[in-house]
Structure formats: C-alpha cells, structure tokens
Nucleic acid binder design. Structure first.
Lengths: 191, 191
DNA sequence: AAAGTGATGACAGGTTCTGTCATCACGGTA
DNA sequence: TACCGTGATGACAGAACCTGTCATCACTTT
C-alpha cells in the first residue's frame, strides 16, 4: 500500500483544518496546505474536489451510520421515532469527538462558503434517511417530511449544544427538541 | 437616474438566466453574460457578489414578505400556524410567477453550486421568520424550531409542486404538507 | 461654466481548478 | 535478475473567477 509517505489524504485534511483554524479559510491557499503536507497543489485536487471539500469527507461515514441505525430500529416504531433514534446515534458520536467537532464547527461557521457546503451535506443526510425510511415501508410524503424535519431539528439542537459548552448531552438535547417540536405542532389556534 | 443604458442590474440578471438556461451554468462565463448585457466583467461584480448571486438577488423581497406576513397574523395564532400563513403567502406569490419560478428552479437544481446557494438563502429565510416570531412573543427554542421546520416543509412541498405541473395549488400543497407533518409527529410507538 | 457624484471601462494580478504528460515506487512475471 | 504494468505524484500550461486601482464618462449642483 504505502509507497511515498503514507496517508496523503489524511495529512492534507489535517493540514487544511489547522491552517483554516490558524489564519482563516479565505487567507489560506491550497498551495500552503500542500506545502505543510509535503505535497503539491495538483495532488490536493486529486483527493478533494475543491478547497471546501477537505472539511467534509467524513460525510459518507455519517450517511452509513444514519442508514444503519434507521435499518436497525424495530419495525413497529413510528417514522419520527426512527429518525430520532438515528439522530441520537449521530449525536452520541459527535459527543465522543466533541473537541474535534467543535473546532471544525468553528471553522465552518466562520465562512459563508463553508456553511453552504455544510447545508448541502445536511440535505444529503436527509435524503439518505428518507431512503432508509422508505426501505422500512414508510410511504411518501411521510418519509421525506420526517427526514427533512429531523435534520431541521438537528440543526437547532446542534446549535444549542455548541452554544452551551457546559451542557454536554447532545442526544438529550435532540430528544428534548423533538418533544418541543411536538408541542409546537400540537398547539392550534383557539376556536 | 438613468445615465448610460438604464437598468444594468436587471439586464445582467436577465442575460445570466438566459445563458444559464441555454447552455448551462458552468459553461457560461461572466464575460459572456456581460457581453450580452452590453457591459464589462468588472461591472458584473459591482452588482453581484459572485457568479451565483445573480440568481438570488430577489431574496430580500422574499424576506420582507415573510416578515410582514408573520407580523400581520393575529396575535392569538400559534407559532406554527403563523409560519404556515407566511409560507402560504410566499407560495401564492410563486404561483403567480409560476413560469419564471419553474425556469429558475430548473437552472438552480441542475448545478450543485447553485443548490448550495439556494440552501443558505433558505436558511436565511428561516432566520428571518424566527426573528419575526420572537418579535411576536414566541419564546426560544419554539421560534427557531417552528421556523426551521416550516422551511423544511416548504422544501418538500415546493418539490412536489415542481414535480406535478398539473397540480398548481402550491399554498394548498403547503397546508396539506403541514397537516401531514402533524400526523407524522403525532404517531407514537405502540406501548 | 466649474466642480462634484456615481456608475462604468480598462488593466493588472492573485487564486482556484482542470488538462496533460512525465516520473517514480512498487508488485508481479519471466 | 530484468522487465513490465499499475497507480500515485510532480511539473507545467492555461482558463475562469474575483479583486484592487485608477481613469473616464454622464449627469447634477452650484
């Protein structure tokens, strides 16, 4: 496997995250990243589609986690409870790598270009969950609604988790947010 | 007001939409757009922050519509019913300009870069609605949850509206989607 | 008529990203 | 041992995006 220095991809990702955090995303050039990783600009673009993607190549693993969790939920669970279980599993994983997740979020949140990429990745996660729900028998539009709503709740809960460093229970915040959403939707206009 | 040829901004936006539709977004250069509009590349970037933004400069008007509608809903309406009213107002406006909306959606949907921009604009709309809800007295996290969830439903309903050219009632699809979401959330796991 | 204002043109230059071909390390095969 | 194939990397050219800067032009104000 290893011919030159091993793990070129990982070295590029590490160097990029460091430089983006140290001096900002915009003021970091791809040439700087490759210099720190001991590679050339052209090689960067062989591993990552563009300068943003280097922060998002973990998305496939997240998709797998969500799809596997949805598939593993007992068949008699409701669509939204299934989505909830998947998001809580993701929340637990974030929890375990809190430091890295928070650093990465700080970098991404600081730049509109990176937030855009984050949002389309989140939309992809919703699509993955909707597919997994349909595989379990949830019909449309319920599957897509549950998945998209779940991602919307995740965004809100994640933001709360980030904003409160002393409150570490992301899965708990997720459960509470979904419960709160049920209340918001159950509230109807007075007669 | 008008010195040179009038409405440079509008001519640029029109030329861009035409070219993006005719030959694709990626294969259209900014120089081509400005040539069709009778201007120079530098002037394009004085009117629009980048090559994508030319398709999204109507967002401010949409924000105004949502904020005004939320502010105008009777004070005793629930948060989600208020969001619903705002989205239906936006849906009605889309309905009135169906042809342009559909053409623009076809262009945006065809390119990941443009979808990214669309998603961050939608996130901005959610923020605007959350602000307007807070101004009405809705507390957090209910305001943000209602706004984000509303946008999630809008995405689903809009996609359905686009996919069914013979079903023109976007406000109706929005109402139905929110009702469906209430059902999805009310469904609980069996004891 | 002169000065001021704001939009546009012209030009240089940095950065991102792609296409293309050469080079290198290693593994297999005779 | 010698040869060849494979896949990753280096080297280089170039298009397109985007920005900074200054000059120019049309129109307004005094």
């Amino acid at each position: 496997m290893g011919r030159w220095e091993p793990n070129a991809r990982g070295r590029l990702a590490q160097a990029a995250l460091e430089l983006y955090a140290e001096q900002g995303y915009e003021r970091t050039t791809v040439v700087e990243i490759t210099a720190r990783a001991g590679l050339t600009e052209r090689t960067f673009y062989r591993h990552f589609a563009d300068k943003r993607e280097v922060l998002f190549f973990g998305t496939e693993m997240v998709k797998d986690l969500l799809a596997r969790t949805v598939a593993g939920v007992p068949a008699d669970a409701s669509a939204m409870d299934t989505v909830s279980a998947a998001l809580e599993a993701l929340g637990a994983e974030f929890q375990e790598n809190a430091e890295r997740v928070r650093l990465r979020d700080a970098v991404v949140s600081a730049h509109a270009e990176l937030r855009e990429r984050e949002l389309i990745k989140l939309a992809g996660l919703a699509g993955t969950m909707a597919d997994a729900l349909r595989d379990r028998g949830t019909p449309e539009p319920a599957a897509t609604l549950a998945a998209e709503t779940g991602i919307a709740v995740f965004k809100v809960a994640f933001a709360r988790w980030i904003s409160e460093p002393g409150r570490p229970d992301l899965p708990g915040i997720l459960r509470a947010s979904i419960a709160e959403l049920r209340n918001v939707l159950a509230e109807r206009a007075p007669a």
